Amino acid sequence: MKEYEVIWEIFNKCPRNQMRDVFVEEIEIEDPEAYIREKFKGKKVSYEQTILADGTIIFDIVTSEIKQRCSFTEI
């Protein structure tokens, strides 16, 4: 298993409010994509995965018409 710092951002849909909810946690998991599928289990969800040069894995997620992002950085 690998240990990751996970930053989960929920973007606000209001055009005049640029604030977003941000949650940070450290977790031990084998597969970040499996973590995303489990987190949104039972919901209609779509996502795109991007891997940055430094190894950070980013999932841009849309569920219930709300844009979210989960970033996994290995610790």
Rank of each mutant, 00 (worst) to 15 (best):
14 C>A: 13
14 C>I: 11
15 P>H: 01
15 P>W: 01
15 P>E: 01
15 P>M: 00
16 R>K: 10
16 R>A: 08
16 R>V: 09
16 R>M: 10
17 N>K: 14
17 N>P: 06
18 Q>F: 13
18 Q>C: 06
19 M>I: 08
19 M>V: 11
20 R>L: 04
21 D>E: 15
21 D>S: 14
21 D>Q: 14
22 V>L: 15
22 V>G: 12
22 V>F: 11
23 F>Q: 12
23 F>I: 12
23 F>C: 06
24 V>Q: 05
24 V>I: 10
25 E>N: 09
26 E>H: 02
26 E>P: 00
26 E>K: 04
27 I>T: 04
27 I>D: 01
27 I>C: 02
27 I>M: 04
28 E>M: 14
28 E>C: 14
28 E>Y: 13
29 I>Y: 02
29 I>M: 05
30 E>N: 08
30 E>S: 07
31 D>I: 02
31 D>L: 03
31 D>K: 09
32 P>I: 02
32 P>D: 03
33 E>L: 06
33 E>F: 06
33 E>H: 07
34 A>P: 03
35 Y>I: 09
35 Y>E: 13
36 I>E: 00
36 I>G: 01
36 I>N: 00
36 I>L: 10
37 R>G: 03
37 R>Q: 12
37 R>V: 07
37 R>D: 10
38 E>P: 02
38 E>I: 03
39 K>F: 12
39 K>N: 08
39 K>M: 14
39 K>L: 14
39 K>R: 15
40 F>R: 00
40 F>K: 00
41 K>R: 05
41 K>Q: 02
41 K>I: 01
42 G>T: 06
42 G>F: 06
42 G>P: 05
42 G>D: 09
42 G>L: 06
42 G>C: 10
42 G>V: 07
43 K>T: 10
43 K>Q: 14
43 K>M: 15
43 K>G: 05
43 K>I: 09
44 K>L: 08
44 K>G: 06
44 K>M: 08
44 K>V: 07
45 V>A: 14
45 V>G: 13
46 S>V: 11
46 S>T: 10
46 S>A: 06
46 S>C: 04
46 S>M: 05
46 S>N: 09
47 Y>S: 15
47 Y>L: 12
47 Y>D: 15
48 E>V: 12
49 Q>C: 12
49 Q>A: 11
50 T>C: 00
50 T>K: 07
50 T>G: 00
50 T>W: 01
51 I>E: 14
51 I>N: 11
51 I>G: 09
51 I>A: 08
52 L>K: 15
52 L>V: 11
52 L>C: 11
52 L>Q: 14
53 A>T: 12
53 A>G: 10
53 A>W: 12
54 D>N: 15
54 D>W: 09
54 D>R: 08
55 G>W: 10
56 T>S: 07
57 I>D: 02
57 I>A: 04
57 I>Q: 04
58 I>L: 10
58 I>T: 05
58 I>H: 02
58 I>D: 03
59 F>Q: 00
59 F>P: 00
59 F>S: 00
59 F>N: 00
60 D>Y: 04
60 D>A: 08
60 D>L: 06
61 I>F: 09
61 I>L: 13
61 I>Q: 08
61 I>T: 09
61 I>E: 07
62 V>Y: 01
62 V>G: 00
